[in-house]
Design a protein around this nucleic acid. Sequence first.
DNA 1: ATTCCAATTAATCAATTGTATAATAAGAAA
DNA 2: TTTCTTATTATACAATTGATTAATTGGAAT
Lengths: 212, 212
Amino acid sequence: MTERRAYRREAEDKRRESLIAAALELVAEGGARAATVRAIADRAGVTPGLIRHYFSSKDDLTREAYRWLMNQMIEASVSAMSNSALDPLARLASFVASSLRPPVIDPVAVALWAGFIQEVRRDPSMREVHAATYLGFRDQLESLIADLPRTVSSEKLRMDAIACNAVIDGLWLEGSMLSDSFAPRELERIGLTSVGLLLGVDLLAAFKDTSQ
Amino acid sequence: MTERRAYRREAEDKRRESLIAAALELVAEGGARAATVRAIADRAGVTPGLIRHYFSSKDDLTREAYRWLMNQMIEASVSAMSNSALDPLARLASFVASSLRPPVIDPVAVALWAGFIQEVRRDPSMREVHAATYLGFRDQLESLIADLPRTVSSEKLRMDAIACNAVIDGLWLEGSMLSDSFAPRELERIGLTSVGLLLGVDLLAAFKDTSQ
DNA sequence: ATTCCAATTAATCAATTGTATAATAAGAAA
DNA sequence: TTTCTTATTATACAATTGATTAATTGGAAT
């Protein structure tokens, strides 16, 4: 007479989401190696077999978790900018600042992003996600810069976008990995100052005007 | 009557180096999870047991491989700068430029670096190696900036170093991953221009003076 | 209440992992 | 040549991995 543990039947969406959330939590705590099938199931309050009921494989679950996270990151940066009531300078400032604080600044995001870089070669289906996130981010930055009240050649505009994107990327990387080394909001300050210097505008002032 | 495979006894340094090289190759090709004990041994033309003879554990080997990689990258940048005959401005320019061209700019290096990210987060001692090498690079940069003929607070100096390091990191990343998108030497030009703008000096001119 | 689909559990599988240990042979030393 | 150290191989082990299957039971539909 074996006693089965009691369980609840959940809606498909809800269950998938909780499994993805559990996977992300584990990656956050101990890297990708910690996110085993059993650990994920345990964290989600479920037995391992259920994972295969919702995902065709563990890699499938990992992939979906990555997609979910990336979408969230894009949304975080874009939503700050989508306030079209602001002038171009303030919009750019919001975009830069929100790219350099949580949830965009996040060790989990870096770990998943790095892991994705290696597997992009083998898995063509994920290549579109990569393009939609990485290059999409840079294009958005370039259009924000183009809206600024200054006249520059398209040549110079391209270089500006590349340089500004590089600062943000670099700060995002090291800020996420060595978050202990930076004071709160320090990354935002450095980012705003640096992008401002690169473009010849005062982003820090523009940001302070809108945020407080 | 078992036939043992023939083998050569190698010097300790040589053997350790070949094992590390094999591990790096595998990480570059298939990520950290591809670098199993057996795969590494196979690649190095050796049997798995030997790894434990040279390294106290597999994590130990991984750690040493990462340290070796980071040290090599730093050395490539530092050697360009060590020409102490140049004035401070020219030395900084050399440092920036050499960080943005091969062999530092290299798709394999990025793949390798990305492959280690997860391990860095998982293993505290890997984290130490990362912090030491990253901060080492940044400190080099900071001391170069400190030598410039300008007077700034130590606060500002730190921020400058972080920002310049971020530009270099971001350009290194973009340039290595999307090397097709850039004209030859374009990354160096953007890097010199950007770092110059951040610090308020003309690095591009300083670089041209010394290199041609 | 009863029926019945499928969400979930439980148990097991084969493969792979890092590690440990004893046997062997390479090659320097004598 | 002979001796001797130890680098190297060979083999095995215990733990963990992702995956598979059959048995259950939750809970909506009837």
